[in-house]
């Protein structure tokens, strides 16, 4: 299993467009990918799951990937986050 923690710096948090990009990215991998925030964990391939977390600016989130392409999945998702969501 691969996992990493990010800090969300985007002004609007994880809202429509960034959530769409994250879910699209996660969907490209076979591994199970989850997003954890404030003790809740959701399927990162689920747009409604991701949005229901209501991640705001300044929040810390942990992404976990488990499966045959876990490392690639985490790297790919990290790239999406760094392109405008956080660090």
């Amino acid at each position: 299993m691969a996992q990493r923690t990010f800090k969300i710096t985007a002004e609007t948090g994880i809202h429509a467009r960034p959530a769409t990009q994250l879910v699209n990215k996660a969907g490209q991998y076979e591994s199970e990918v989850t997003l954890e925030h404030k003790g809740k964990s959701v399927n990162l391939k689920s747009i409604m799951g991701v949005m229901s977390l209501g991640v705001a600016q300044g929040a810390e989130v942990t992404i976990k990937a488990e499966g045959p392409d876990a490392d690639e999945a985490l790297a790919g998702i990290a790239e999406v986050i760094k392109e405008g969501l956080g660090e």
């Binding site: 429509a16 769409t20 399927n43 391939k45 747009i47 409604m48 799951g49």
Partner: peptide
């Protein structure tokens, strides 16, 4: 067009 990308993702949402 952005709004329809989100609509499409809802229809692919495994939770749904």
């Amino acid at each position: 067009a952005e709004i329809f990308s989100a609509h499409l993702l809802v229809l692919s949402d495994p939770e749904l």
